[in-house]
Design a protein around this nucleic acid. Structure first.
Lengths: 337, 337
DNA sequence: AACGACGTCGCAAACGTTTGCGACGTCGTT
DNA sequence: AACGACGTCGCAAACGTTTGCGACGTCGTT
């Protein structure tokens, strides 16, 4: 119940003014060595700690960065957070995390909450249900830098960091083709998300480069475990026409393998499956999943670095950049040799 | 770049005092209906939002709760966060998350940061390397309520919420015995963690209740995937003496299964394996893992509810309670029928 | 006509800092 | 002896709110 000791308390006890205490604590040249020693010793003794609330108000800077993500319980996002946390912490920033639950309305409220709390910057990945971006413009208009990762809107000029989705999808598809697949199904994310669009484009590009005719029937919108079970009928119906599947993420791939295997289809002998993401599941599922590595932690670090640059570099007008992280193929046992 | 409009701004433009604006905005009876209408209409027009920083300082209340967890990239902890976030949000609180990375020193710094930022309360789960609790007492001494979940110190009086580790371990071990196992290895967490201790005790209790002699050689300290690989030799050496394994968590169980299977041991025919946790991995690994369900989200919700009670109930002295959530057996294919 | 009640507002202080500016004393120089 | 330079400190305002208290006007009552 001990109330935190303040500069005023110290001043009163020591019989000097608060300004002198404040200056003594930060080694200001105006203060005599004797006073400094006295103040610093006393402050240490009573374990003085500046009140961050007062500091925040005074400098209107909170040393806090806000994060808005679709959901925390998701390996990719939690590893992004981990990366963010690491570099933010090293730079003396705290993080405030909001979860949109893939809900646009919640995302709007979150953005407002972060603005109300005057975070110094925002790191975000769009929810699947947001098509309007006024809440983001609102942040930017109020001078709060925003950088996106993974899921970013086309229409907003801002720093963005992605894995190279196009390239990743391309090398995944290439790998399927190189191991003999010719009729490749793609389980895709909605195309209003850049990532859905780009991974689909990479898939198509790989087909083209190998002279394989693109078949529009071979793309199904299906990007969650539940989606797979909902679409199981459709997928099984295609099963005898295809020899490979490229999915937009790992959990879709794993659920697909489970559905196929339960119906007597052998992987990779009958159908090869490759995912995208490389979470820990890829090592744990059966068979171990070939996939594309999408380094969440690295993305988080890069995004935070970009944000800090913007926060600390207030002078000139900022020119948005897009960082792209090159993905790597992880070949395991769900594809042929 | 538009600076946020303040009460002072409104007062100046409308030609009235800031106090009147403040009161008009919160419908104070002292203010005339005409003035209220004018102020409220104007505030709405310019999208006035109170500055949370100033409010925080004024009431020395931040409507923020701090979280300290060992690591975010872990299904159990991220689902706890998800639960916390849910009830905190509903009650108008933000969350500030710190990751100790299982490092005591970092945990101390995190606690200090949360204190500096005057969070209204702290939810935490101890790192594996903390044996000293002064940083926690410091929080409590300064009037910040703390509630623990999952990993809590014995020596501190505070609200705590656990799954019933003892019971969970007991029913898991019972299940192994009921399906025919007699020589059961336990891969355990360090016993200075309550959870390690309790799960071990539950294991021993189950043996006792079934008249099975407890063999101290059948407990190995081994509670991560990496630990399993490090201890692979020791485990394989025991393999022909045992017919069941109960592990302190799922990832240990899964890694163990992989090590055993790679060495030609069949699961569950030769050795049954049961875990603790029931993350998504349990469904994804091969064979699907029998385990004990440890509802992270529910734990997070309960813990937050306890914390909010404490925060809002400042009147009388608080009597710490411990909530215990009953676990449920999830039988899948890594144990016999 | 005088007084009290009430409605409506503004002043000022406060939360805990920081910082520009001026005040005061001492000392050395001319 | 007088003046300037410099060292050392405190006052006051500011960040954006809230709130106790008092001020002022109007109206109704006796």
């Amino acid at each position: 119940m001990a109330h935190q000791v303040t500069i005023k308390d110290i001043a009163k006890i020591l019989g000097i003014s608060a300004s002198t205490v404040s200056r003594a604590l930060k080694d200001h040249p105006d203060i005599s060595p004797k006073t400094k020693r006295m103040v610093q010793a006393f402050a240490q003794k009573v374990n003085y700690r500046p009140n961050a609330l007062a500091l925040n108000l005074r400098r209107s800077k909170t040393n806090t960065i806000g994060i808005i993500i679709p959901e925390i319980v998701h390996h990719f996002f939690s590893s992004v957070i981990s990366g963010i946390e690491k570099v933010a912490y090293a730079a003396g920033y705290n993080v405030m995390i909001c979860q949109s639950n893939e809900d646009y309305n919640r995302e709007v409220i979150d953005a407002q909450a972060l603005l109300d709390n005057r975070v110094d910057g925002v790191l975000m990945s769009l929810s699947k249900t947001t098509f309007d971006h006024d809440h983001i413009r609102n942040l930017i208009d109020h001078g709060i830098p925003v950088v996106f990762f993974d899921r970013a809107p086309n229409e907003i000029e801002a720093d963005k960091v992605f894995i190279d989705d196009f390239m990743g999808a391309k090398i995944a598809t290439h790998h399927l083709i190189a191991t003999g697949c010719r009729n490749i199904l793609h389980l895709a994310a909605p195309s209003h998300l850049l990532i859905g669009q780009r991974r689909r484009d990479g898939y198509i590009k790989a087909l083209e480069e190998n002279g394989i005719q693109f078949n529009p029937d071979f793309i199904i919108k299906c990007d969650t475990r539940d989606d797979v079970f909902a679409n199981a009928g459709k997928i099984l119906q295609l099963a005898n026409q295809i020899d490979g599947i490229f999915t937009v993420n790992d959990s879709t791939a794993i659920a697909t393998m489970q559905v196929l295997m339960k119906n007597g289809i052998r992987i990779p002998e009958h159908i090869s499956v490759i995912g995208f993401g490389d979470g820990p599941n890829a090592n744990i599922c059966y068979p171990p999943l070939s996939t594309v590595e999408q380094k969440g932690t690295e993305i988080g670090k890069e995004a935070t670095q970009l944000l800090l640059n913007q926060i600390e570099n207030t002078e000139d007008i900022y020119k948005p950049t897009t960082k792209t992280i090159t993905p790597v193929l992880r070949i395991r046992e769900s594809t042929l040799m």
